[in-house]
C-alpha cells in the first residue's frame, strides 16, 4: 500500500464505514428483528437494546404460530424444503441442457445460431407477468400447475439463459487447439468434451450454476402464480406472516434470515469463482 497521511486513512475508514452501513444496514436490522417480539419491533422510538428471544425461530421450526388471536399453522420448513428442491433441480436441469448448448454456440457456426442464442437471452428481458397468464392456462390444461416438474420447467426461463451465456464465454475463451490436440491424440469427441472441455471450464460452470441457484432461490412471481401452498418456496411462503391479526414482523425477519442463509453461505464459499465467472462472461458475452 502507498504511503498515506493520517487524514487520508481516516477519510478512507469513514467512507468505507458509510458504504458498509448503507449496504449492510437492512440485513443487520433484519437479523436484530428476528430476535425480537412484535411488540419490541413496533415500539417507538426503536431501540437497539432488547432482550433477545428465540421465539420467532421456534415458531418457524415447529410450524405453530401463536398470536393473541389464536394459533396459526405455518409451513415454513416445507417452504424451505420446496425452495431447495426447486432450485437444485432447476439448476441441475439447466446445467444438463445449457452446458452442451453453450459449447455448441461457442464452437460451431450454424444457421440461426446467433438468433437462437439471443432469443434465449431475451427471456431475461421480458417481464415474467407477460407470459404468466397464458402459462397458467396451459399448465392447468397440461396438469402441470402446482407440480415440481412444472415449476422446474418454468424456472428454466431464469436458469438456462444465465448458464448458457456465461458458460459460452468460458468455452470461447478456451483455445480449440487444446481440444484438437486431444482429438488427434486419438480420443473421440465425447471423451474430449468430458475430459478436456468440461474440466477446463469448470470454474465458469460452477459460477454460472451458483448464480442460477441464487436467481432461482429468489424467484417470487412464478411460484406465486403457479404453485399452491404445499409447493411454494420461501419467497412466497413469507406472505403467510401477513395474518388477519397483523403482520408478524418478527417471524418474517427470522424467515428471511433462514432463507438467505443457504445462498449466502454458497456465495461466500464460491465468491472467487463468482467474480471470475461474472467478469469473464460479461467481457466475452
Amino acid at each position: 500500500m502507498q504511503h498515506q497521511s493520517t487524514f487520508e486513512r481516516v477519510l478512507r475508514g469513514v467512507l468505507i464505514a458509510l458504504v458498509l452501513v448503507f449496504f449492510m444496514f437492512p440485513i443487520v436490522w433484519i437479523l436484530l428483528m428476528s430476535f425480537q417480539t412484535n411488540e419490541q419491533i413496533l415500539r417507538i422510538p426503536p431501540s437497539l437494546l432488547f432482550e433477545p428471544t428465540l421465539e420467532n425461530y421456534r415458531a418457524l421450526i415447529t410450524g405453530r404460530l401463536e398470536t393473541h388471536a389464536g394459533t396459526l399453522d405455518i409451513r415454513f420448513m416445507q417452504n424451505l424444503w420446496n425452495s431447495l428442491i426447486l432450485s437444485v433441480f432447476s439448476v441441475a436441469l439447466a446445467l444438463v441442457l445449457g452446458v452442451p448448448a453453450a459449447y455448441a454456440f461457442a464452437r460451431f457456426r450454424f444457421r440461426l445460431g446467433e438468433d437462437i442464442a439471443f432469443t434465449l437471452l431475451s427471456f431475461r428481458f421480458a417481464p415474467p407477468l407477460l407470459v404468466l397468464l397464458p402459462l397458467t392456462l396451459y399448465f392447468q390444461d397440461l396438469g402441470l400447475s402446482d407440480t415440481y416438474v412444472g415449476l422446474v420447467w418454468v424456472y428454466q426461463l431464469i436458469c438456462l439463459p444465465l448458464i448458457l451465456w456465461i458458460v459460452r464465454g468460458y468455452f470461447e475463451d478456451m483455445s480449440p487447439d487444446i481440444e484438437h490436440a486431444y482429438r488427434t491424440a486419438g480420443h473421440g469427441w465425447l471423451t474430449t468434451f468430458r475430459r478436456i472441455s468440461i474440466p477446463l471450464t469448470a470454474p465458469g460452470i460452477a459460477a454460472a450454476g451458483l448464480l442460477a441457484f441464487i436467481f432461482a432461490w429468489n424467484n417470487f412471481i412464478f411460484a406465486l402464480v403457479l404453485a399452491s401452498a404445499d409447493k411454494q418456496p420461501v419467497t412466497v411462503g413469507a406472505l403467510a406472516f401477513v395474518t388477519a391479526s397483523g403482520i408478524q414482523y418478527g417471524q418474517i425477519a427470522a424467515a428471511i434470515v433462514l432463507s438467505i442463509t443457504p445462498t449466502l453461505a454458497l456465495a461466500l464459499y464460491a465468491q472467487r469463482y463468482l467474480v471470475e465467472g461474472l467478469s469473464l462472461g460479461a467481457v466475452k458475452g
Binding site: 483455445s175 487444446i178 490436440a181 488427434t184 478436456i196
Partner: peptide
C-alpha cells in the same frame, strides 16, 4: 475419417498442452 482415427501426431504452435494434467499425463494421452 475423424481426427482420432487418422494415426497422426501433431505438435501445435501454441503447444496446446492440457493445463489440468501433468506433463506425464499430457504425453500419455495418445
Amino acid at each position: 475419417v475423424a481426427p482420432e482415427r487418422r494415426g497422426i501426431g501433431m505438435a501445435f504452435q501454441n503447444f496446446a498442452l492440457f493445463p489440468h494434467m501433468t506433463a506425464f499425463d499430457n504425453i500419455a494421452s495418445p
